[in-house]
Computed example of a mutant assay.
Amino acid sequence: MHENRTPQVEEQVLVRKAQQGDAQIFSLLVSKYQRRLKHFLRRFTHDDQITLDVVQETFLKAYKALPQFRASSQFYTWLCCIGMNTAKSMIAVYGREPQMITEIVDENGEEVDVLEHLSDYQTPEKQLLNRELIDVLGEAIDQLPPNLRQPIILFEINDLSYEEIAQIMGCPIGTVRSRIARARELLSAEVESRFEHD
């Protein structure tokens, strides 16, 4: 009787079976995370074909590295780590700089502006200036250095924890916290400077 299993426990069971060599179970994990991983990596590659190549390579690497996976981290977080490293390598081959873009795709396949989801900008007063504010924030996020742009989008949009972002970025949790705080400061300062005369 496993009716009370949480999704996390069910995932751990699937991963364990895949680690024991069950390729069909691994295919289930691929199906579960492929779309989400594709949208995540698309923000770095900014190119559909490169994204598809990176996703395919990520799952190949993950399958080979399954014996090394430890359940101390989420499977999806582990995939993101592999995916980001693969994206960096592949982008270098294609001769393009990795970058974030500010659109996400929701569960219906519709593009949604990431800026509308930044929690700090959801007060009723600020929503009165919503369209102009979003435009300003879009420019401000594009101007953030990658080491600040990446964690704030991972945190605000992907809803990843500080711990998960630290794993993906390969840096201490304290660094993630400070970079997110710094990104928010810069975004707030840019918004204030653009609207101070209104």
Rank of each mutant, 00 (worst) to 15 (best):
R35D: 13
R36S: 09
F40Q: 02
F44C: 01
H46E: 07
D48S: 07
I50Q: 07
I50Y: 06
V54E: 01
V55T: 02
E57W: 04
F59H: 02
K64G: 10
L66P: 02
L66V: 03
P67S: 05
Q68V: 02
F69H: 00
F69S: 00
A71M: 00
A71I: 00
S72W: 00
S72D: 00
S72R: 00
Q74W: 02
C80S: 01
C80R: 04
N85V: 01
T86K: 10
S89H: 10
I91R: 13
A92H: 13
V93D: 15
G95D: 06
Q99D: 11
Q99Y: 13
I101N: 15
T102H: 14
E103L: 14
E103Y: 14
V105A: 13
D106F: 08
N108L: 13
G109M: 09
G109P: 06
E111L: 14
V112I: 13
D113C: 11
D113Q: 08
L115D: 05
Y121G: 02
P124R: 06
E125G: 08
K126L: 14
L129G: 02
L129M: 11
R131Q: 14
E132T: 09
I134F: 09
D135K: 12
A140P: 05
A140L: 06
L144C: 05
L144Q: 05
P146D: 14
R149M: 11
P151F: 11
P151E: 10
L154M: 15
E156R: 04
I157G: 06
N158R: 06
I165H: 04
